[in-house]
Write a protein that binds this DNA or RNA. Structure first.
Length: 624
DNA sequence: GTGGGGG
């Protein structure tokens, strides 16, 4: 029995003919190419069969978009004082909960219900696809931790004293028990420790860093908040992500977790009017979710100060620290008024963590714990990966073959959602146009579109109204789009980690998915890493791809993951790798892969302001 | 070189 649309799609594609020839000796032989106009068929009816948009209205009857003065009651929790000593990190079960009485709480009953119609209305028979996370898919996955005194994992949310309000929201979210990354990461964070966490796409990372932040703020263990400048917001926690849509998504999720806790979450990102964001900030903010550019803007306008930050979380942390983002992140984290490592608590999350990036990241961390959950930084075996040899000139018609096969097998009378990744913004527009001209309802998301267009495209895709989304890498990371049955790498990325994130848009929350990549001689550098990744995730590697991979010159370079270590799960702590540890830095206090737990992480932070001793200035950044 | 991220 198929458990998802992807299954039926996969079944269909087993019989779908590929039809492409190639002159390359390594490339597979295929039957004759049939031009699209001979295979195309009219299809105006399919779009009408698409599912209706999901209901958005909250059962409170309050409009979902906050626009009025609902939050107008001023907060009076802008307290004075410094970092509050940062103590008590390990104290669980102690001290009472801060009920955060104040202006915010007075308006609590008017807080927009972020759960919409779901709240309280337990459906008796929920569609399998909507019943939450498939936890069976997460049994027995490998876990590796390293660092000093790693707190032991928990098996249930009940074991953790997150507080009643948060527990209620966890139930509202229908989370029954923690996912593996949550089981390990939450105790580490609650223990006050810095964390670098590497976990599969779609395995619940957002909650893993949100729960401890919300819980910690509710406990109010941070003393008083500085507030001298009346129009400057001083959040207690900062969550950064690389794209606007991902920040929005994190904000929406965090609002659910923080519902009726008195913890206020605000989002700030570019491309949207800044005035509304400024108003939200003025009404008070505990957790600020932001993209780097807009945050820098707000900091320079002195509308936000980071002096009260106690928690810093970087989602997609390896992306945030790569060449493009690193200068902005350094500015935010190191050159503004943010408390240093060891004073604030820092959490880095991603499905991938190249060793070079780990080394950069250690500048932002103090005595941190490295956590790796699951195999090869990604792609559970739940994602069926296929690679097909397709010449550039044949890509469009080959894509159409795949789409036709899906359309014919669309379960539930709807076409499965297909996410198509391309390399460039122009390429995205042009492919979208071509698909539409050929009767396939498609839209596109990329950085040349206005923010309104981007959000509209995402909505239209999610609702099934436009079941094909052509995207650049803006959509590669983090976005949680239910029912994406198929990810097509129309253009393969140049980096295997990007591939991992892209295909991770399907097969989420324990559900299965399909990923198809078009490979040709422009992608030879990906042959070996791709082949290795597929092997590690128990995928069938086509013989022709294995032949490419076997060529010494193909993909043996920097693209290889794990420093050539291959076969190990999850990525490894670079501190344990001699090749990366010869600079003399004493990063690594001791390995405890066996989770040897020596008791509470005794009061606090590991001295020093980060493990900055080890590497010379040469490794800092090409942009410095 | 592409992509993302502030006007």
């Amino acid at each position: 029995m198929p458990t998802s649309w992807a299954d039926s799609v996969a079944a269909a594609e087993n019989t779908a003919a590929g039809s492409y020839g190639s002159s390359n000796s390594l490339a597979p032989n295929r039957p004759t190419y049939v031009p699209p106009h001979l295979r195309n068929r009219p299809s105006s009816s399919e779009a009408a069969a698409a599912p209706a948009p999901a209901p958005v209205a909250a059962n409170t009857g309050v409009p979902a978009v906050s626009g009025g003065n609902r939050w107008a009651a001023p907060r009076n929790d802008f307290r004075s004082g410094g970092y509050g000593g940062g103590g008590g990190g390990g104290g669980r079960g102690g001290g009472g909960w801060n009920n955060r009485s104040g202006g915010w709480d007075r308006g609590r009953d008017r807080e927009v219900n972020p759960f919409g119609n779901d709240d309280g209305a337990e459906q008796q028979f929920v569609d399998q696809e909507n019943s939450g996370i498939n936890f069976d898919a997460y049994e027995d996955i490998p876990v590796e931790t390293s660092g000093d005194n790693v707190p032991p994992p928990v098996n249930t949310f009940a074991e953790i004293d997150l507080g009643e309000a948060l527990n209620l929201n966890i139930r509202r979210c229908k989370y029954v028990k923690p996912t593996p990354v949550q089981r390990h990461a939450i105790p580490i964070s609650l223990g006050g420790r810095d964390l670098m966490a590497c976990a599969q796409t779609g395995s619940g990372k957002t909650a893993a860093f949100c729960f401890p932040i919300i819980s910690g703020i509710m406990r109010g263990q941070f003393g008083q908040r500085a507030q001298r400048m009346p129009r400057t917001a001083c959040p207690l926690a900062l969550i950064l992500s690389p794209t606007r849509e991902l920040s929005c998504q994190i904000h929406e999720e965090a609002r659910k977790f923080a519902y009726q806790t008195g913890v206020k979450v605000v989002v700030a990102y570019g491309g949207a009017p800044i005035n509304q964001q400024l108003r939200e900030l003025e009404r008070g903010v505990d957790i600020l979710v932001a993209t780097p550019g807009r945050l820098v803007d707000l900091l320079e306008r002195a509308r936000v100060s980071l002096q009260s930050i106690q928690y810093l979380a970087l989602d997609e942390a390896d992306r945030m620290l790569d060449m493009g983002f690193e200068p902005q992140i350094r500015k935010i984290v190191q050159q503004m008024d943010m408390p240093p490592p060891g004073v604030r608590q820092t959490m880095l999350f991603s499905a991938t963590f190249p060793k070079e990036i780990q080394r950069l990241a250690s500048d932002f961390l103090a005595n941190y714990i490295f956590l790796a959950v699951g195999r090869v930084g990604s792609s559970t075996d739940l994602i069926v990966q296929r690679v097909e040899y397709v010449q550039e000139s044949d890509k469009r018609s080959h894509l159409m073959d795949l789409l036709h096969a899906q359309r014919a097998n669309g379960a539930h009378g709807k076409q499965a959602l297909t996410l198509v990744f391309v390399e460039t913004k122009k390429g995205a527009d042009s492919l979208e146009y071509w698909l539409c001209m050929n009767g396939f309802p498609a839209t596109t998301i990329h950085g040349d579109r206005s923010q309104q267009e981007r959000e509209q495209a995402l909505r239209s895709f999610k609702s099934g109204n436009t079941p094909i989304l052509v995207a650049t890498d803006v959509a590669a990371r983090g976005l949680d789009i239910p029912h994406v049955a198929h990810v097509v790498n129309f253009d393969l990325p140049n980096d295997i980690d990007d591939y991992v994130h892209r295909i991770g848009r399907t097969g989420r929350a324990g559900k299965s998915g399909l990923a198809t990549a078009f490979f040709n001689d422009n992608n030879t550098s990906m042959a070996r890493p791709l082949s290795e990744l597929m092997q590690e995730s128990n995928q069938e590697v086509p013989a022709w791809l294995a032949r490419y991979a076997a060529r010494v010159s193909y993909g043996g370079g920097k693209n290889r993951r794990g420093g050539g270590g291959g076969g190990r799960f999850g990525g490894r702590d670079f501190r344990r790798d001699n090749n990366f540890n010869r600079g003399g830095g004493d990063y690594y206090g001791g390995g405890n892969t066996n989770n040897a737990y020596g008791g509470a992480p005794g009061g606090g932070y590991g001295g020093g302001y980060g493990a900055s001793g080890g590497y010379g200035p040469g490794v800092a950044s090409a942009w410095d």
